[in-house]
Design a protein around this nucleic acid. Sequence first.
RNA 1: GCGCCUGUAGCUCAGCUGGAUAGAGCAUCUGCCUUCUAAGCAGGUUGUCGCACGUUCGAGUCGUGCCAGGCGCGCCA
Length: 561
Amino acid sequence: MSLYERIKKKIYNNLEEAAYRARENGKLAYDELPAFVLEEPRERQLGDLATNLAMLLTKQCKKAPREIAEIILENLEITDTWITASEIAGPGFINFRLDSNWLTGVIPEVLSQEDKYGSVNIGQGQKLQVEFVSANPTGLLHMGNARGAALGDSLAALLSMAGYDVSREFYINDAGNQIHNFALSLEARYLQQLGHDVPFPEAGYHGEDLIETVKRIIEQDGDKYVTLEEDFRRESLVRQALEEKLHDIKTTLEDFGVFYDVWFSEQTLHESGYVRDTTNELQDKGYIYENEGALWFKSTLLGDEKDEVIIRSNGVPTYFAADIAYHRNKFHRGFRKVINIWGADHHGHVGRLKGAMQALGYNPDSLQIILMQLVRLIQDGEVVKMSKRSGQYITLRELMDEVGKDAARFYFILRDPDSTVEFDLDLAKSQSADNPVYYVQYAHARLCSILRQAKEQGYETDIEPDRNQLALLNSNEEKDLLKKIADLPGEIAISAKMAEPHRLARYVLDLAALFHTFYNSQRVLIEDTDLRVARLGLIKSTKQVLANILGILGVSAPERM
RNA sequence: GCGCCUGUAGCUCAGCUGGAUAGAGCAUCUGCCUUCUAAGCAGGUUGUCGCACGUUCGAGUCGUGCCAGGCGCGCCA
């Protein structure tokens, strides 16, 4: 637990005790102590910490909030809390002022924990999986995938910082109908390239990249598939195309800073009989019935609106069947918690899949599905319908080429997954210099520059400031910076708990702003040795925290800009 | 028609289990570089938090009903 959390917890506990004591001595009458908060007030002038405890007790105690606050203060023990003053303010807040050195202890913590600073252990080493992107290997990665990649990767990093044993996984949809369509599309392109006049399938994939793919196949193997039997021809083309597409997806994601632990093939679930086994288990448990030659899953038994076909009347399992098997497999592999990042267009599927997990005996809450609203592409002021089938989309590769990895990742991670993002590539290009990511990176580069200059000027930068030196950090700018730094473990905890990495993007922006303010008001490289040592400690801590968070967000922390 | 998401400053968006005077960036206006990076800082301007009721000490936050936009409601994935 960090220093900041320890102090807060101590005061929190003392407040609880004060309330209990007041009940014992008859000053307050209530049944249950409400869940109150102890947090920093909005305005610095109000104090260092504030609680709403008194206001929450009004109903039960039938007293005015300020009167209750009075009673609590009378019963509050303040030794070892750093509290130097308390006052009742506004509608009934209790504000505390703390000894001005209460925060400086965070500096030695950051300097000793280095890249571990900010870690919390709410995960307790539990195995957790984040599955994200899982784009169909029938085309290139687009903007929606970019958002999913930025979100999923940062979430995974955040959760490992919060003490989970995290695995990143990509589910390869290399089976089913779409692969059949993919095969037909490839076949048509292949034959067309070789001069045959064949129609392009209605439901085919129109992307230009497919033509490139068959061109490469022709370069290598010529026209040898033309005379092959249809099935063999399609299979050969698909096998090569899939390999190429997957390789492309993998390297594109790696360039985007995303590395997976596991690439999981849907096909293997069919081949191993796992899909069939899973279906049988559902059948044994009474969740399957037959209608019009197909097998249906009784989702309605588990609160869903309609039942769902799991095995078609032609005997072929649906995507849903494979998905159930896949998620059953995840739990078999020992993951205690499984998080999926899906596009909002799949939300109808959430209830059914959770229902299926429940039917199989798993806790449906162990499967968390984060729905991310779609990215809408704007061109010439118009919304463009993006789809792999139409071939109309901006690729992740183009995005990186145009605006850069850091700006692109920050752009997405700054936003709540629930918000619909409009993306205008031309606008993004023209505004890429205004991207807030540079504001943060600039802060990091500035910090590095100070440390460089310190060395050039012959100052020792590795000495750790002692308690007396740290006590010199008492300006508002320094204290604000210290508070923000001290806040990090709590910020990690709540972001992880809520699975919302975008909070950290906000945090790091705030931290950069506080540093820039400090930078413009006070100098680090000064004659006064004690103050200089203390400030060097402060800026080394700031730099460490910036780097830690940027690392989670997958954004680089440059030494110079 | 039903379900889910969204509606906050001119634009893009934050706002934790309800809390004090609703915030940030961009844009715009005014100052600040002979001192550690001006990709910066300080300050000004900008709001019926979609609308209306309700719940309570207190609502951007919770409830209900409307309005607007997005997505979904296949033996597609």
